[in-house]
Design a protein around this nucleic acid. Sequence first.
RNA 1: GCGGGUGUGGUAUAACGGUCAUUACUCCAGUUUUCCAAACUGGCUACGGGAGUUCGACUCUCCCCACCCGCACCA
Length: 450
Amino acid sequence: MSDVTLEDIASLAKRRGFIYQGSEIYGGLAGTWDYGPLGVTLKRNIVNAWWKFFVESRDDMYGIDSAILMNPKVWVASGHVAGFTDPLIEDTKTKKRYRLDHLLEEAGVDIKGMNLEQMTQALQEKGIKSPDGNDLGNPASFNLLFETSMGAVEGEKSTIYLRGETAQGMFTNFRNVVDSFYPDLPFGIAQIGKAFRNEISPRDFIFRVREFEIAEFEYFINPSSWEEKFEMWRSQMHEWCNRLGLPAEKIHELEVPEEDRAHYSKRTIDFEFDFPFGKKELYGLAYRTDFDLMNHQNASGRSMEYRPKDGSAPFVPHVIEPTFGVDRTLMAVLCNAYTVDEMNGEKRIFLKLPKDLAPVKAAVSPLLKNKPELVNKAREVYDMLKKELGAVMWDDNGNIGKRYRRQDEIGTPACITIDFQTLEDGTVTVRNRDTAEQERVAIQGIVERL
RNA sequence: GCGGGUGUGGUAUAACGGUCAUUACUCCAGUUUUCCAAACUGGCUACGGGAGUUCGACUCUCCCCACCCGCACCA
């Protein structure tokens, strides 16, 4: 359905307990969202699948969980304190904003190492106008790093940053992991966790937010093999999308041209997804070279060299970095799952979630709730399934059709109904979410059917 | 951050400078119901926040906040 809007999805997400606006009772806080009971389960299912696929099932991957707060020197060395800042300048007439550094570059100015003041001066000396030929106002710079302060005593506090990416935790622990395990090259260090960015304008539901979750890993390689490893992860990323049930035709690769690439990247491919509001970045795959390890080696004085076991010359490994926005993943999964079809002349909305991602695996209902013998039997089945599967829901509200529709909206793959025949022959009906078809199954065989 | 728009129960909405703020669905309790949002009864829940104008503001003005669209940004 192409006419499904983001509002439809956000509305259902709220109504059914997936995603709420952050701090809602106080009018909200821009760029923050809270996950409700079903949302957190869905997210956890995604994250667990990711960890299983990229970490646990491999023998060249090492998981870590590093601190959100890091020594500020990390962010200086990584280039984020300087490079995370965008100098913007406004056309005084059209009110359009432009990147000051871009305008200068176009005018042939070498801006390397310039601060905002120097750039402003260069702008004035050159008499640069906006692309529309108008005067430019005063530049302002936006640093996307979130600042906070450490220390409880006023006046003795020091400014530190909430991490803007999780990657630096992998780089700062490179030495530790090598010392603990001495893995063969290539190997990776993976992490899932929160990152924070002072986005200028959060947008599009949970797509661009100020606090978000990233799953990513740094894959350390011999630079001579970078192209081969890059290709390997490229295809693994497609395989991952496939496992999420995201159709290949909705995933698009974008070769990021040099001028748009991050300061550390020698090659970047964006994986874009067809969201209801357009084709937008979902994942990134970057060849970060030895940029980060070299910077940390220089700044910390600690060696980042890897000593090959065959006795060949030590070197600082290069890095391939696949990065996955967890919230964006969840959003893509939701958008992709949202299905509208017709049933008995009425609109039926259901979430066609892959079984292993669905927050509720099955719902159990007595056909009628005023017949104690049905309710008791249904309770029995429910207790049994709850023990086996965990994520099972009891539902006896309204009539049976209503329950089916309710479960449809939260993507429950199967509904199990206990009726009078159950009391006689021990079979139940299992109703399929996607086809709405039902099938009689013996109670003993339910678990295998789900 | 700029320009434009929007803001009424959980969701979607109506109206009005002046009694208890409308309706539908959802949700909850109950009656009923032998498989796809049936019916009936009852119930919870809203004017985003703050100032101001006014005898009286959900309605008019201003400020703030959030969301939507465009620009810009998006490591």
